[in-house]
């Protein structure tokens, strides 16, 4: 007898939406980092999405920082040094070598986030405030500039808030589509740039011609007006924007029963 499942959480909806973007024979890079919401967005959601895609038979290889092709279900209880070093994987690459696959163009997709994003998908993880000393000094570019330059496509996972979705980022620390059509080519960037933006309210993409951010779908229970109100720039809204598909019962059962039974990934219950 089937037990009624609790409704999908926002993080589950985001994971399922992201998983539908994966294609066969991809090599995807997930950065490793801890810390509540940042961890859920940067590590948790991409990991669950990857496992859901693998369940559907999508054949691809994941790299977590320096760990090549680790067993996703074996994700350790903490991302501290000892546990990471015991996580079963095909290879553990030196830090300065782990991005080689990017530079060779072999990395098909990666997942990035930041404090601000603009209508062309440029990201900022460096500073709030444009002139002089910053109002808030953030963590820094990390390897996100490397991802943004080299990955064939990046997926941006962000909280959907007006102060995050801004008309112009205070600092471009990871380039998106710059100022529009042809910009990446003129800059000599080998990768394709941001493909989809997955937020807690919607799935967004980029217009093929103008390279501006477009609304693809709104999550169940969210209205287009709410998304517009939470966006600090003019969003392109095609006629008849649909709803992000709800996770199926099978997907929810897989997430809760097998992929993330203890909430390590989607509730950041990791040390």
């Amino acid at each position: 007898m089937a037990v009624a499942l609790a409704p999908a959480t926002t993080e589950e909806i985001m994971s399922v939406a992201l998983s539908r973007q994966f294609r066969a024979r991809e090599h995807a890079f997930i950065g490793l980092g801890t810390g509540d919401r940042a961890f859920i967005y940067a590590v948790g959601i991409p990991t669950v999405a990857a496992q859901l895609a693998a369940d559907r038979g999508v054949d691809f290889c994941l790299q977590y920082g320096t760990l090549l092709d680790p067993s996703i279900t074996g994700i350790p209880d903490s991302l501290g040094d000892p546990d990471l070093l015991d996580w079963e994987c095909a290879a553990r690459l030196p830090v300065e070598r782990c991005l080689d696959v990017f530079r060779r163009g072999l990395m098909t997709c990666s997942f990035i986030s930041g404090a601000q994003i603009d209508k062309f998908g440029n990201l900022n993880s460096v500073r709030i405030g444009r002139e002089g000393p910053p109002k808030v000094r953030l963590t820094g570019p990390i390897a996100q500039a490397d991802h943004a330059v080299f990955a064939q496509r990046t997926f941006v996972i962000m909280p959907h808030e007006r102060r995050v979705f801004v008309d112009r980022v205070d600092f471009i620390s990871a380039p998106g589509h710059g100022d529009g059509p042809g910009w990446r080519e003129r800059q000599g960037l080998p990768g394709g740039g941001p493909d989809k933006v997955i937020t807690d309210k919607a799935v967004l993409g980029f217009d093929a011609v103008s390279r501006r951010m477009t609304l693809d779908s709104v999550h169940p229970g969210v209205t287009v007006d709410e998304v517009v109100a939470a966006t600090g720039f003019e969003l392109l809204i095609p006629a008849g924007v649909g709803e992000t598909p709800s996770p199926s019962a099978a997907e929810l059962a897989a997430i809760r029963g097998r992929i993330d039974p203890t909430g390590k990934l989607l509730q950041a219950r990791i040390k």
């Binding site: 300065e96 460096v126 000393p133 109002k135 000094r137 490397d146």
Partner: peptide, 20 residues
């Protein structure tokens, strides 16, 4: 963050790989 916000310290930002 504080020494950069107050302008007390100069800084240069690099991507991970660029500095490596």
């Amino acid at each position: 963050s504080r020494v950069i916000e107050t302008g007390a310290v100069e800084f240069e930002d690099y991507s991970h790989f660029a500095l490596a």
